[in-house]
């Protein structure tokens, strides 16, 4: 399963958010999208998922143009983890995850036993099986995020697009979710996720796409793409990259000081 975009331009209506963008994702890879607030990460994701019409360029999914697929056809190949939202109605966690099984059910039938088991397995996979009967609306932001990831797992699509899966998580849960992402990639899933923390890219991603104002500043292996100069340019302040004793890289922001 492969997703690729060539010379992509995207935005809302006629308003352009980004252009000239290329990216490629195959099974087993983790592509990390980095960029400041408002650089177009969510818009790009929605375009890749076919939720927004693209303005120019090509998106190719599994050898065919994305526009040739039905909504269900896309959903069978790509799952989406939106940013954690509050939800309107108090569905139980298990029901929320069951909704991920939609494309595996007939239009007029509801979830069957196999679907229920799959949903439970997805919850267990993320270590949140104990939340199954709780109301989604009463969970913490981090728990909601995990539930939405479980829903994407239950969808059984080979590619998963995650919009800032760590945004509302505490330090420990961030590490747990990212470790899950690595585990999923090791099973052969292709994952795109966006984050505000460059350290995530070094630690977990096989590729990184550095976005600024909707343009790709760099794309490639994290070690090559994420230089001090580029990070400083993207985030608009001096950034220092350091290697820890085990060669793991981290970056530190150094606001311009008066000294």
């Amino acid at each position: 399963m492969e997703l690729s975009a060539v010379n992509l331009a995207f935005g809302y209506g006629r308003q352009r958010v980004g252009k000239n963008l290329d990216l490629q994702l195959s099974g087993g890879e983790i592509l990390c999208l980095l960029g400041p607030n408002g650089c177009g990460k969510t818009t790009l994701f929605k375009t890749l998922l076919g939720l927004l019409p693209r303005q120019a360029g090509h998106i190719d999914l599994d050898g065919r143009d994305l526009n040739e697929y039905s909504r269900a056809g896309i959903a069978r190949r790509m799952a989406y983890v939106p940013q954690a939202h509050e939800g309107v109605f108090a569905y139980s966690v298990h029901e929320m995850v069951l909704m991920g099984r939609n494309v595996h059910q007939g239009l007029f039938s509801g979830p069957d036993k196999a679907d229920r088991l799959r949903a439970t397995a997805a919850l267990q996979d993320l270590g949140i099986a104990d939340l199954a009967k709780r109301d989604y609306t009463r969970l913490s932001g981090g728990q909601r995020q995990l539930v939405l990831i479980a829903r994407a797992l239950a969808q059984d699509a080979p590619l998963i697009v995650m919009d800032e899966p760590t945004a509302s998580l505490d330090f420990g849960n961030q590490a747990r979710v990212l470790a899950q992402i690595v585990r999923l990639a090791e099973r052969g899933l292709g994952i795109v996720f966006s984050t505000h923390n460059p350290d995530h890219a070094w630690r977990y991603a096989s590729q990184v796409l550095l976005l600024k104002d909707g343009r790709a500043l760099a794309c490639g292996a994290p070690e090559e793409a994420l230089t001090e100069r580029r990070l400083s340019e993207v985030y608009g302040l001096p950034v220092r990259v350091e290697a820890l004793a085990d060669h793991q890289r981290v970056c530190v922001a150094r606001p311009a000081s008066r000294s």
Partner: peptide, 9 residues
């Protein structure tokens, strides 16, 4: 958006 991403029209 979520309904669409889950495969509905």
């Amino acid at each position: 958006e979520e309904a669409a991403s889950l495969g509905l029209s």
